[in-house]
Design a protein around this nucleic acid. Structure first.
Length: 737
DNA sequence: GGGTGGCATCTTTTT
DNA sequence: GATGCCACCC
């Protein structure tokens, strides 16, 4: 019996069984700061979970005393299951194991009133924030076409993540968007507060403010959480760093795990410096390096090491493995993205037959979500079961967000963003003009839209508008008054608002799908409603789903091939991995050219993708790919070039087109990099210049017309005569002198 | 006020 | 090639 009154069911030795000496050290050094530098496939999840189980099992930590923070729900779930498996006693499961956002949302929930929010607050995701910003811009007569609300949102989010206050963001000497962001930051914060809403960044920021303002609350949590764990520490941003430091400052039992080579979230503020400087933050930190890889073959690991060696900024690690050499990594050359998808599909089929793999042994990775389309089509055509992780998640689908907006308005009527979303959906006679009148009134009196509606008679609307607004008010009022389980309330508002009827009217396949999605949402509400107290309330449901992402729905062993971005693949492993679209301007993305740092981040991303593979890795690229609805000639990725000695290049169906495309790509590299808008390609092309075409040979430019993407050249070819070519697309380069 | 058709824009990556 | 926005007509 340990001093928490729980009988351990397994011995410490049993829990630690099978760990190598380094892993064991990492798992049992439970006093003071620890940093675990862990390469891919080194068993870091295992170490972290063993560590928790060990502390709980030996009675060193209370199950509620362990704080373990991850970045994805998937990682949290996996860890929870593993600890449970090790301690074999559900009373001893760690209670504060979750993502940064979900754990902090839990903290916030208990103290929201202290910050002046009511318990029925809304949580705004990025698209909600964007809508709010768009509304602010419109009311300030800024043109949302010139300054994208999305870019403004991103800049404000960036400022919040750097913990800059509105007063600290200056407007001078900035680009238009930055000026707009600086100008809108304060109004945005005020609007959030007025809407009784937190945005994603607030979920981490507000707890810090809470802790600053109420030291007794902080002390309570510091007291409770005796041991702090942070997974993927290289991905922490400034706010997360501050949170961790604040919480751990009292006991200093902080254990971070990370791999600087796998830092791929700089774009959302992740600061690789956090892991690089851990030792200066905690000079007495014990550092453990886990360099043995248990996952991949030698061939795969070698390719990963060769690739990442091109990065300058990194902690040196010497990865090694006892695993077998394995088959050579294959580099497959496809003609188009359809051809690429077809190779993937064909290899999956062959490997299933010849080597006995099952569908869930395969992962197909890509850089951008847009690439999933062709792959998906190939899977559908050939009856290959597949799942796509990420992309548009269920709770981000338009119809689901619309339906959720109804529920949010019921729970939190101050939620202007949600209210505007549904006020005229389906159309009920509250048009642009009326909405404008209501908004203006709300703005003038500094009240929420709902307060205006609640008192609509006094605004002086037209007869028709009065009737329409009155009906809407009655609808919301009657449903909020219901004292029924959440699913009953939800079904009632969807029905009375005519939302369901509206969806039913559309009998196209997509329309039916939308209806089904709303039905599915109702099921989710019903399921959640089975909980007790606030855990089963509508407000609780809404706050929970706000943090749900599609990636969380993934699970292995379901007999499906997995398609996802490389970002989404972090933390998983598959026997066979395909990385597709290895082309300049796609992977690495073009904008990565702008700085060495972002190029290094792209390379780390490639590294992450490569190291997902256990047994066999395929790298693919296409000579031609449809982008922006146009067929584009592609050059293969520099990442392929860097590992060219580690791959076996395979050209299936080798055709003249493929080969000349290849040699063209090689020669053309320094001459005419295709660029968006093609200015780079076209400056050197003017009447009189000599050019070389992939298929037509050499020629002389007669004239150049059009601009931007429509820029064309009339060329007289030595052997085939005159041709007009789109400069954006043509495999054309300036001839060598 | 509501509906429809044309057009511009879009592509990083996510909690 | 989809999506969202705007202008235009009922």
């Amino acid at each position: 019996m340990n001093h928490f009154g729980v009988e351990p069911t397994v011995s410490a030795e049993h829990i630690l069984h099978g760990l190598n000496p380094e892993q064991r050290k990492a798992a049992t050094t439970t006093d003071g700061p620890v940093m675990i530098i862990a390469g891919p496939g080194s068993g870091k999840t295992r170490v972290l979970t063993t560590r928790m189980a060990y502390m709980i099992g030996t009675g060193e930590a209370d199950p509620a005393g362990i704080l373990a923070l991850t970045f994805t729900n998937k990682a949290a779930r996996e860890m929870k299951e593993r600890v449970a498996g090790l301690v074999q006693n559900e009373r001893m499961e760690p209670r504060w194991l979750g993502t940064f956002h979900s754990v902090m949302a839990r903290v916030l929930r208990s103290h929201a009133d202290k910050l002046g929010y009511t318990r029925s607050y809304s949580i705004y995701d990025t698209s909600d924030s964007e809508r709010l910003i768009r509304d602010l811009m419109v009311s300030r007569r800024m043109d949302p076409k010139k300054m994208k609300p999305r870019s403004v949102q991103r800049l404000i989010s960036e400022a919040k993540n750097k913990m800059l206050k509105p007063s600290e963001v200056t407007k001078e000497g900035k680009t238009g968007t930055a000026t707009a962001a600086a100008e809108l930051y304060l109004p945005y914060e005020q609007a959030l507060k007025k809407a009784n809403a937190f945005d994603f960044d607030d979920l981490l920021l507000k707890p810090i403010i809470l802790f600053q303002r109420f030291p007794d609350i902080l002390a309570r949590y510091q007291d409770q959480w005796t041991h702090v764990h942070i997974d993927e520490y290289q991905d922490t941003n400034h706010v997360q760093y501050r949170l961790a430091r604040t919480i751990a400052s009292r006991r200093r039992n902080i254990c971070v795990v990370g791999d600087d080579a796998q830092s791929i979230y700089a774009f959302r503020g992740a600061d690789i410096g956090n892991i690089l400087s851990f030792k200066s933050d905690y000079p007495d930190a014990v550092v453990v390096r886990l360099e043995q890889n248990y996952r991949s073959t030698k061939a795969i690991l070698r390719l990963a090491s060769v690739s990442i060696a091109n990065n300058r900024k990194q902690l040196k690690k010497q990865l090694w493995t006892d695993n077998s050499e394995g088959p050579k990594v294959q580099n497959i050359w496809a003609l188009t993205e359809q051809d690429e998808a077809d190779h993937v599909r064909r290899i999956i089929r062959e490997m299933r037959i010849r080597k006995g793999y099952s569908f869930d042994d395969f992962a197909v990775l890509y850089r951008t979500n847009a690439q999933s389309r062709a792959l998906e089509a190939a899977m559908v055509r050939n009856d290959v079961p597949y799942q796509i992780i990420g992309g548009v998640s269920f709770y981000q689908k338009r119809e689901v967000k619309d339906a959720l907006a109804y529920l949010r308005v019921l729970v939190n009527p101050s939620d202007d963003v949600s209210l505007r979303r549904i006020i005229n959906l389906p159309t009920r006679g509250i048009g642009k003009k009326t909405i404008n009148d209501l908004t203006t009134f709300a703005g003038r009196h500094q009240i929420s839209l709902w307060e205006v509606i609640a008192d609509f008679q006094r605004i002086g609307l037209g007869v028709r508008a009065v009737r329409a607004v009155g009906a809407f008010k009655d609808l919301i009022d009657s449903c909020s008054a219901l004292q029924e389980p959440p699913q009953v309330v939800a079904r009632r508002i969807f029905k009375d608002s005519l939302l369901l009827q509206h969806l039913r009217k559309d009998d196209t396949v997509e329309g039916q799908n939308r209806l089904e999605n709303v039905e599915e949402l109702l099921n989710a509400v019903a399921e959640y409603g089975l909980g007790v107290g606030s855990a089963g309330s509508l407000a609780g449901f809404l706050q929970e789903v706000a943090l749900f992402t599609d990636a969380d729905a993934s699970d292995g062993g379901n007999g499906k091939v997995t398609l996802m971005t490389i970002h989404a693949s972090k933390g998983s492993e598959y026997p066979v991995v395909f990385i597709t679209g290895l082309e300049e301007d796609l992977f690495p993305v073009l904008s990565a050219d702008e700085s060495a740092e972002s190029m290094e981040e792209e390379r780390r991303l490639f590294y992450v993708g490569v190291t997902r593979a256990k047994a066999q890795l395929f790298l693919l690229h296409a000579s031609s790919r449809m982008r922006f609805g146009m067929q584009e000639t592609r050059q293969y990725s520099r990442f392929l070039e860097e590992v060219e000695h580690e791959v076996e290049a395979i050209v299936y169906r080798p055709t003249a087109t493929v080969r000349s495309a290849r040699s063209f790509a090689r020669q053309g590299r320094n001459v005419a990099q295709p660029q968006r808008g093609s200015t780079g390609l076209s400056i050197k092309i003017e009447p009189g210049s000599r050019v070389q075409h992939r298929d037509f040979g050499s020629g002389t430019v007669l004239s150049v017309t059009g601009s931007g993407d429509r820029r064309r050249a009339e060329v007289y070819f030595d052997h085939v005569g005159p041709k007009t070519l789109m400069l954006r697309l043509a495999p054309l380069r300036v001839a060598d002198l």
